[in-house]
Design a protein around this nucleic acid. Sequence first.
DNA 1: ATAAAAAGTTGAACCAGATTAACTTTTTAC
DNA 2: GTAAAAAGTTAATCTGGTTCAACTTTTTAT
Lengths: 197, 197
Amino acid sequence: MVQPEFEFLSNHILKRVQLTEEELNFMLSKFKLTKIKKRQFIVQPGFTAKYRNYVCSGAFRAYVVIDNGEDHTIQFAIEDWWITDYNSFFNDQPATMFVVALEDSVILQLSRENEDLLKQANHKYETFFRISAERAQAFHFRQLITNLTQPAEFRYENFLDKYSQIANRVPQYALASYLGMTTEYLSKLRNKRTSKQ
Amino acid sequence: MVQPEFEFLSNHILKRVQLTEEELNFMLSKFKLTKIKKRQFIVQPGFTAKYRNYVCSGAFRAYVVIDNGEDHTIQFAIEDWWITDYNSFFNDQPATMFVVALEDSVILQLSRENEDLLKQANHKYETFFRISAERAQAFHFRQLITNLTQPAEFRYENFLDKYSQIANRVPQYALASYLGMTTEYLSKLRNKRTSKQ
DNA sequence: ATAAAAAGTTGAACCAGATTAACTTTTTAC
DNA sequence: GTAAAAAGTTAATCTGGTTCAACTTTTTAT
């Protein structure tokens, strides 16, 4: 019987493309199961992000550090999400982001070489990655619109609404920088909210 | 001899995937040449975006209108760029954006049906769309980072640097809302800049 | 267990950028 | 060509959110 981690990924894949058992197993065989300890980095500036990572359990945070030392969260990933520095991964360039584990985690890693191999091997695999990219594209688009058009309080409420699971699991400073505000201000918003109801 | 509009698109495609003459022509045959007058809409909220649009000449602006009537520019597209409401196009849902011509323009339109047909017909076509989506993904990611981490003045200077061609061609109110600031403030930044050197 | 470090809170002072309003310049439509 | 509408400018005022600083609570390492 397959390990449960591969079971999660199987479901994820089959939701997006129809594969035969054989096709599925071939695809899965290209992934590498890796355990990551809390605070461990899976992507670091200066090094090329060699893997696309599927999170089976645990949580990650991607962030950039700018000149003055401030860090800005770009993405979170929990179970059933993907994370990497795509710019680095796709273009084989040094990463500009950090990706760090917020909890002890288990991930399935697909190297760029194996991804290319899959894409060439079978039209359906290519379809899978195309769909993933299209979804990510639409997701970031929506995020861009929200950041551009909505004030801080709405962004926070909205995030709570849509991703309460993540909101309650990640450190507050990380969430604040993801939402584009300071920890202090987020702390006030939180307080205001809980005292309201 | 082919029309120059198709020539532009051919170059665009061949930069991303290697196709035989026959494969290229089949792909091109699925596009529809359309002339669009200034101020004409090619995507409107409430209607599904039926086409992905390649701009041969002219300029477009995608924007959303929020409750209070303010509009926010989400994307510009000039020659050799694509534009549509991808959320609507991919998911066959009513659009939430407007896409309007800023100049008299010529575009090549690919319907969702024809895109699906191409994706199924040949692995290489699928590769083309996958590459497009991946690039868009990386692009929006970078944009998200800039918006999150940089102050208004930097965002403007940076845009001038990277997209001077667009900056000098689109109305100021559209650029201001794209950069996440008011027209008045952008006007001040411009002034400050020109008086500096 | 316990000390040290990291994360989160609270309040006062401040500022980047928004708002309002009156104006000038450019574009559009007839 | 010309009037009206749209776009852009300028200055005064205002505010959502930041910064700074002192503090409390939670987490981490030994």
